[in-house]
């Protein structure tokens, strides 16, 4: 591959004759044109994002004017009387995502520690690859598995067990359906764990080896050096991976739609059926009769968009800062 290795770097610049001249020379050679063309394509990304925001904003004018901020806190979703509130969907989205993070965080970080710190390199790479494949499984397939495998197990085993052992908590009371917040949270857990594992592992691997060596030299056990030195060092990046997982969970549509129960209610119990923003859009968008109804759904889309964008923005910054710091040290 690397056969041409003539080392000469002066002489590529045009002879100095003023900036205009240089510019003209480059223009002649097509560099500026190439630059411009690629720049236009790059700018398409802005155009796309801006267009997205604009369309969501423009097409949700009716409910924004009619309901204002109340839209976010009203819990009525009533197509008969044309009255719409987003609260049950926001609640359902948050509860299922929070549940997914609660379960996926220890699982994901634990697995990442194992893969980054303990497993031999070959094993680690192999397992990581397998786990990354899990991230590639289409969400509708998680939904099918959810309906036919997970929901029956939740109904006959998990929920009765939780009810028996932790039934004193309002979280685990009420009638057992199988579908509902818990089932949706579990499906989401499986879906986001790979993200946490693969990014956390990368972040952990970027921690400079001196950190570990120093701790071990001071007599710390392997676990102590990992938990007290390596993990804290990488914590911002790990947090970033968790935020990314959160953004993914919030926006997940198909798998959640298929197991959440599709009932716009705010219930304390995790056993209860609920609804999420993405699910209600998927179910009702094609059949929303009347402009206010449809635009309310689009405003839900806008809410989802804004929330995921903010969380994503935060996550990227967090991951960026740690991996940079890591590589800078190394």
């Amino acid at each position: 591959m690397a056969s041409t290795s003539v080392v000469l770097n002066s002489g590529t610049r045009p002879p100095s004759g003023g900036r205009v001249h240089a510019f003209l020379a480059r223009l002649k050679r097509g560099d500026e044109i190439a630059h411009l063309i690629t720049l236009i394509f790059a700018a398409c990304i802005f155009a796309l994002t801006a267009g997205l925001v604009f369309e969501l904003w423009r097409n949700s004018a009716l409910p924004r004017h009619q309901f204002g901020w109340h839209f976010l806190v009203t819990s009525v979703w009533d197509p008969v009387f044309d009255n719409y509130g987003a609260a049950p969907f926001i609640y359902g989205t948050i509860v299922t995502s929070a549940l997914a993070l609660f379960l996926a965080m220890p699982l994901g970080v634990g697995a990442a520690i194992f893969l980054a710190e303990l497993a031999p390199k070959g094993v680690s790479n192999g397992l990581t690859f397998v786990i990354e494949l899990l991230a590639a499984v289409p969400s509708v397939i998680f939904g099918v598995l959810g309906i036919f495998i997970l929901v029956p197990i939740v109904r006959t085993d998990i929920e009765p067990f939780l009810h028996k052992t932790l039934g004193f908590l309002p979280l685990f009371q009420g009638p057992i359906y199988g579908v509902g917040f818990l089932a949706a949270g579990l499906v989401l857990t499986i879906m986001v764990v790979p993200f946490i594992i693969s990014i956390s592992r990368e972040v952990l691997l970027a921690v400079p080896p001196e950190q570990r060596e120093a701790a071990l030299a001071l007599g710390a056990t392997k676990w102590e050096s990992t938990w007290k030195v390596v993990v804290p060092y990488a914590r911002t990046g790990i947090a970033g991976s968790i935020f990314l997982a959160l953004a993914r969970a919030l926006g997940e549509t198909m798998a959640v739609t298929m197991v959440i129960g599709n009932d716009p209610k705010i219930s304390a119990s995790l056993f209860a059926p609920g609804y999420s923003i993405a699910a209600v859009i998927a179910n009702e968008f094609t059949e929303a009769t009347g402009s206010l109804y449809r635009e309310s759904l689009i405003e839900l889309g806008l809410v989802l968009f804004v929330v995921t964008i903010i969380i994503n923005a935060l996550a990227r910054l967090l991951v960026l800062t740690t991996t940079r710091r890591g590589t800078a040290h190394a």
């Binding site: 994002t49 997205l52 919030l250 926006g251 993405a278 968009f305």
Partner: peptide, 21 residues
């Protein structure tokens, strides 16, 4: 950065966008 954010946009929102445009 925008590309990364765009990557995180929920797919259902992309659907709404394609519907309106």
């Amino acid at each position: 950065y925008t590309a990364d954010l765009l990557n995180g946009v929920p797919s259902i929102v992309m659907g709404i966008f394609a519907f309106t445009v």
